[in-house]
Design a protein around this nucleic acid. Structure first.
Length: 139
DNA sequence: GCCAACGTTGGC
DNA sequence: GCCAACGTTGGC
């Protein structure tokens, strides 16, 4: 199993909206960046991810699971763009903020820190375990 | 609201 | 194929 991070502006698509979709999940549509799309192509069913709120919160607020592998993005006819579906697994107990991540030597190399603009990004198993511990949530 | 970083587009 | 111009993102 691999680990990922999905970034969203809460004004556009929030954790609460994701939770409201239940186990059926929702398309992670709207990604228009090749790097991000390529990561989604690598995702397998059951892969886990962090749900990160950019802009206002700047924090990881929940855990998600990939519930459909890559398929055409339904909101465009442009065949270049594909996406996966994700569903909410559980919320974190303590949101892990960007400041907290930057302050942690174990997390200093995260893509979130190195390339803040990439909206879908890989997370290492070590980073996954560390952030789950900080968040007070089962991995 | 500003600005830096970065990705994409299009002219050559 | 290069590179300047432009648009977008996201932290501050």
């Amino acid at each position: 199993m691999r680990f990922w991070l999905f970034k969203s502006e809460p004004d556009a698509w929030s954790w609460d909206q994701q939770v409201a979709k239940g186990d059926a999940g929702e398309e992670w549509s709207g990604v228009r960046n090749y790097q991000a799309r390529n990561f989604m192509r690598e995702m397998a069913l059951g892969d886990r991810g962090f749900f990160y709120h950019s802009q206002t919160d700047k924090a990881i607020v929940g855990l998600v699971e990939v519930c459909a592998t890559v398929h055409p993005d339904s909101i465009t006819d442009d065949a270049r763009w594909e996406c996966v579906d994700i569903r909410a697994l559980r919320p974190v107990t303590t949101p892990v903020t960007l400041d907290r991540i930057k302050a942690d030597p174990m997390l200093a190399d995260m893509v979130l820190v190195k390339n803040s603009r990439l909206s879908v990004q890989p997370v290492t198993p070590e980073e996954w375990a560390r952030i789950c511990a900080l968040a007070g949530v089962d991995p």
